[in-house]
Design a protein around this nucleic acid. Structure first.
Length: 128
DNA sequence: CCTATGACAGACA
DNA sequence: GTGTCTGCCATAG
């Protein structure tokens, strides 16, 4: 990997991930949005799975949009679950996590808190 | 430039 | 609820 110079997207994505508070989680799509590319969830996933320098990054706080751990069993799943549990995040069987309760809300805006509101704002942004 | 890969996400059956 | 298909994007050869 590059290791010395990162693209703006990668840099912002990592920044966003570092910004996830302890005991909270964010989805790949959410990080992508914060990095400036709403639809680059796969790009975020790529960064995490390919980056050898995830050290220092709270990568375990990034989960799939369906509220589940995305890592396969035997390849990080257990570790992620363990680290989340250590922060007080309840992880059910199959890696299920209640986004309603644990998803990070960078804005903290009262109006943008509900999922419906977030979806609305998201689509609004998409349209331009 | 073109192809392949992925820890994604939405739509649909 | 699950399984499949499709679109999406950043990166690596």
């Amino acid at each position: 990997m590059d290791t010395r110079r990162e693209t703006p997207f990668t840099r912002r994505a990592k920044e966003a991930i570092r910004g996830i508070p302890r005991g909270r989680v964010a989805t790949y799509g959410q990080i992508a949005g914060l990095a400036g590319r709403e639809a680059a969830a796969r790009g975020v996933a790529w960064i995490l799975h390919s980056s050898s320098e995830t050290s220092g990054l709270p990568w375990h706080r990034v989960i799939g949009g369906r509220g589940r751990i995305s890592l396969p069993r035997g390849r990080g799943f257990e570790l992620q679950k363990k680290r989340l549990a250590a922060e007080g995040v309840e992880v059910g069987r199959g890696g299920r996590i209640d986004l309603k309760r644990y998803q990070w809300e960078p804005c903290e805006g009262a109006a943008s808190r509900s999922p419906a509101a977030r979806k609305f704002l998201s689509e609004l942004t998409k349209r331009g």
